[in-house]
Design a protein around this nucleic acid. Sequence first.
DNA 1: CTTCCTCTGTGAATATTTTCACTAATAGTA
DNA 2: TACTATTAGTGAAAATATTCACAGAGGAAG
Lengths: 216, 216
Amino acid sequence: MEIKRTPKPSIIRLCSILNFLEDQENLGKENIFSQEIGEYLDLPAFSIRKDISYIGEIGNTIAGYNISKLKAHIEDKLKLSGTQNTCLVGLGSLGTAILNYEKLNSSNFKLVAVFDTNLNKLEMIKLKIRAYPAYQIEEIVKKHSITAAIITVPSKSTQEVANKLIKGGVRGIINFTPTLIRSGRNDVVVRNIDLLNELRILQALIALKSIDSAGE
Amino acid sequence: MEIKRTPKPSIIRLCSILNFLEDQENLGKENIFSQEIGEYLDLPAFSIRKDISYIGEIGNTIAGYNISKLKAHIEDKLKLSGTQNTCLVGLGSLGTAILNYEKLNSSNFKLVAVFDTNLNKLEMIKLKIRAYPAYQIEEIVKKHSITAAIITVPSKSTQEVANKLIKGGVRGIINFTPTLIRSGRNDVVVRNIDLLNELRILQALIALKSIDSAGE
DNA sequence: CTTCCTCTGTGAATATTTTCACTAATAGTA
DNA sequence: TACTATTAGTGAAAATATTCACAGAGGAAG
Ligand SMILES: NC(=O)c1ccc[n+]([C@@H]2O[C@H](COP(=O)([O-])OP(=O)(O)OC[C@H]3O[C@@H](n4cnc5c(N)ncnc54)[C@H](O)[C@@H]3O)[C@@H](O)[C@H]2O)c1
Ligand SMILES: NC(=O)c1ccc[n+]([C@@H]2O[C@H](COP(=O)([O-])OP(=O)(O)OC[C@H]3O[C@@H](n4cnc5c(N)ncnc54)[C@H](O)[C@@H]3O)[C@@H](O)[C@H]2O)c1
C-alpha cells in the first residue's frame, strides 16, 4: 500500500535503521532480521517491521531482510539518495570539529562551502572546501544549489545567518547554537541541537524514570 | 492535580521553555504570556499552557506568567535544580569545542572531570578542569558522584567508554558518536546526537513536507 | 456595581503512535 | 506430502499526545 503516510517518529527511526544497515553491510553481512535491528535500536521487533512496512513490502519470510536491498529501499522512499550540497557557517572551534567529521565525507551530503565573518580564520583553512566571507552566503548558496546548512556561529548571529541561508534557498538547517531559529515558513525544517538543553532533558527524563520504576 | 503524569514530549518542550525564560529574564522581562512563549517555540499558545499545566497552576489570568516564578517551578518539578557533576570523555577536536561552550559554565551542570587515553593531550590542557587517563573513569566517576557524561571519543570506543561510565554510576549520557549506546538498563538515559543522522532526518522531513503541502 | 475584555487552566474530542495477536509465506525435514 | 519452525506484514486495539472550546478569574472602565 503506497498511500499510507509514514508517521514522523517512524521516519526518524528509519534513518537510524539505515545507519545500522550501513555498518552491518560494511561488516560483510548480507541479511538481517527485524529482531536484530530491534536489539540494536532497543525496540521490539514488531516495531521495526511496522516502520519498514510503511515504506512497502521488502522482507523475506525466511531470510529476513536483504541488507543492500532494504538500504536502497529506505533511501529511495525517504528521498535520501542523490547528492545534497551542504554548507557550514561559523568556523570556530565547533565548526572546525565538524569539518573533521570523517563520516560525512562518505555520505551523500557534500560540504561545498564554509562561511565566516573572520577573514583571518578563512586564510587558515588548509582544506579543499572553499571558504567565503559571510556576506556572500546568499549568493554562494544560490550558485551551488545548497539545500542544507549547519550553523555554528555565536548565538546572537544565529537568526541573521539563518535568514540569509533561507533567502538563498536552504531548506534544512542544523543549528548547534542555543538560540532557536524561526524560519517563518513551513517548507524549511530546522533541527536545534543544544548541549545544555540536551543535558537538561537527560536529567528530567532520569527523574521521570525514577518515578516510573517506583510505581512498579 | 499532582498525580497526572507529564507526557515525555511535554517534558522536552518544558526544557526549551525554561531556556527561553532564562533569556527573557536576562533581558529584564518580568512577565510573559503563553502566546509569546508559543511564538518563540513555534507552537500554539494552548499547547504551551497545557505543557505548563502538567506541572501545576502557576499563571496569572491578567499578567500571564511571572518569569522567575515559572522558571523556579519548572526547575523544581523537572528536578533541574541542584548541581549535577558532569564529565567529558574524549578530548579531541569535538571535545575541546565543547569545553569552550561558555553557556555550560553558568548552568547547574558542573564539568568536574575530562578523560582521554592520550596523555600528551592531557598535558596540553590549560583549563581548571582536572583531566584523567581513561582507565580511571570508573574510579573518578564514583569519587566525584558524576551523574551525567558527554562522550566524544572515536566511534569504536563508544560502548566501552559507556560501560565504564555506567559502572561508575553515571545515569545520563550524551553521545556525539555515530555508534548507538546500549545501556542494557532502564535507569540509564542516553541521547544520541549524530550529525549525519540529523542531516538525513532533515532531508527526509523536507521530503515529507513537500508531500504534505502538495496535498493542501 | 456591572460589563467587558483578556488570559489561564482544563475536560473532552480528536489525532497519532505504539502494541498486539494473528495470518501467510517459505524452507527444511520426516 | 504433511508437519514444524521461523519470520515478515498488518488490521485492530490500546496507549499516548495534541487540539479545541469554553469556564472561570480578575482587572479596567464606565
Ligand atoms: N550544541 C553544542 O553542543 C555546542 C557546543 C559548543 C558550542 N556551541 C555553540 O556553537 C556556537 C559556536 O561555538 P564555538 O565554540 O565554535 O564558537 P567560536 O567563537 O569558536 O566560533 C564562532 C565562529 O563564528 C564566526 N562568526 C561570527 N559571526 C558570524 C556570522 N555572522 N557569520 C558567519 N560567521 C560568524 C566567528 O568568526 C567564529 O569563527 C556557539 O553559539 C556556541 O554556543 C554549541
Ligand atoms: N555528532 C557530531 O556532530 C560529530 C561531529 C564530529 C565528530 N563526531 C564524532 O565525535 C567523535 C570525536 O570526534 P573528534 O573529531 O573529536 O575525534 P578526535 O580523534 O579528534 O578525538 C577523539 C579523542 O578521543 C580520545 N580517545 C580515544 N579512545 C579513547 C578512549 N577509549 N577513552 C577516552 N578517550 C579516548 C583520543 O585520544 C582523542 O583525543 C567521533 O566519534 C566522531 O565521529 C561527531
